[in-house]
Amino acid sequence: MSLGTETRAGWGFVAPALLWTTAFFVAPFLVMAAMSLATLEGRSLVWGLHLDNYARLFSQGYLLRAVAVSLEITVTVTLVSVLLAYPLAWIIAFHVPKRWQRLALLLTILPFWTSYVVRSYAWLLVLAREGVVNDTLLALGLIAEPLTLANTRFATVTGFVHFFVMLLTLTIYANLVQLSPNYARAARDLGASGLQTFRHVILPLTLPGIVTGAFLTFVLCIGDYITPQILGGNNELTVPQVIMVQLGRRADFPLASALSLMLMGIVTLAYLACARWLRLDRL
């Protein structure tokens, strides 16, 4: 087989997926980019090369605020999720007996299979003023008055963290069990304390897994509409919520496109910030 036919055959295999991605991902993205440069006059769309929508992002207070809200929520969720998932994965990997680990993992991610829309709604019921949490705390005498939990940023963050702790526990666990115990043993033989071993040996070795999980958390969280919409009580709007309002109430595709590109810009920055640890094609 000559190299020519070899290459041609290879192309034949890759082409369908490439065409698919180009036609239904790259092309729509380019159209969306063009759309973000169009404007609405009354109700009709005018194509062109206007920067009006981008100017609005910075001049209209509520749009800029939406970007800030989205960023604050996403960064909080990512950090809290990693900080909760790491110890959980650690306990499952190193404290739970081997034969029970699979079961523990399965139990950890089982609620992942409740419908995603319903999961947020369930949190709303849990956090309500007369909900389970307030009821329990009142009964235990820990609080005198019901706490305001639902319809707040706290509720949005809780709903997100619940979901991402499940996912991150899985990825971090996979990383931890791949570690050879020899590394830790070697570090200890060389006189490192438990904390030093963790900081200088285990953490760096598990960092790619953590960063990959954290990045996916960031992407999924910043683009999510349902969780803040159900749990946030509209007390503040995230970028996806504003996008949906622009689409639903006035079909402002140009502004929605500009906001989407802004969102992508943020994700790209996050990607560049952690690119050296990312292993996306080796999930």
Partner: peptide, 17 residues
Amino acid sequence: LLIAPMTVSYLIVGLGL
């Protein structure tokens, strides 16, 4: 290119389409 859609929010994929 094949991995790229993974790094983009579902909302954006849907809106583009």
